[in-house]
Design a protein around this nucleic acid. Sequence first.
DNA 1: TATTGTTATACTCTATAACTATA
DNA 2: TATAGTTATAGAGTATAACAATA
Lengths: 160, 160
Amino acid sequence: MNKRQTGARPIPRRAISDTTLRRFTGYNLKLAFTALSDDLHGILGGHQLRLTTFSALALIADNADIAQGELAQALRIERSSAVVVVDDLEDRELITRNRVPGDRRSYALRITLKGRRLLSRLEKEIGAHEARMFRNLTASERAILIDLLNRVEAAGDPAG
Amino acid sequence: MNKRQTGARPIPRRAISDTTLRRFTGYNLKLAFTALSDDLHGILGGHQLRLTTFSALALIADNADIAQGELAQALRIERSSAVVVVDDLEDRELITRNRVPGDRRSYALRITLKGRRLLSRLEKEIGAHEARMFRNLTASERAILIDLLNRVEAAGDPAG
DNA sequence: TATTGTTATACTCTATAACTATA
DNA sequence: TATAGTTATAGAGTATAACAATA
């Protein structure tokens, strides 16, 4: 019952050191983000959604009659890239493009009932995903994390 | 001296709400990561480096004679992608590919003096970048942030 | 002239799969 | 047969630039 079988040699996988990178807070942030992101993609993929598309749906839900340019700005992507995202959401009848009376160049985007239902479902699934990913943190630690992250984000804004 | 000139209408840029997304810790994490990342890319770009290439250099510095496959594993990329990264570092004489006596299939990667000098320079520049990006946090808050992030990262590992 | 959305195109990064040379 | 590295190719996601319709 020896675990080390004679024929199959144990993989001599030397542990790799990342000491230099670990000194940077950003590296620790990236690894946490990647872990979270990988797990989230699994959930969104189950609904044929990308992170950007999901974010767009949530933003349209929160901002009735938002224009495509505004959406692009909120998503931090180019207007041309927003077209692809909005096309996808519209094709799946999760949102509608509506003409604006005052300005016939722009659209007013609105979430549909079907979109609301999917969003609601996603909120639950992502909530469960986060419960799993943050299970090593207490509620108050998680609140502290959010506060600290927000202050890092603020340091990046032009305002500072 | 009216700031609102008659001809140039004030941009009626309605504030976009991201309430739904803000409820997710991961969204806050992503925004902090993006802010950090954008700023860092500026620094690395000044040295014609991508984040992955810089990370590779730091890992090779910490792990003398690391093989390309091991490097790929540490960087969480495919072996074929590592080739491109290592080619770049070798072309710039920041590392060397050395033949391994025992196994002529694999390389032992080693940082050069030139590589060490660049890495040392980068460590200083990135240190300054992080001082800027984390200026809204005290030293102990930053330590807490790292600890919390490491516990999120751990939740993502297969071990848990 | 400027703006909104669109299209066509190109670029960046990475993965997949087939290959070579070793083992 | 399996492994280390390589190559060729494709894919995902995004940006850039030129354009049409409208302001």
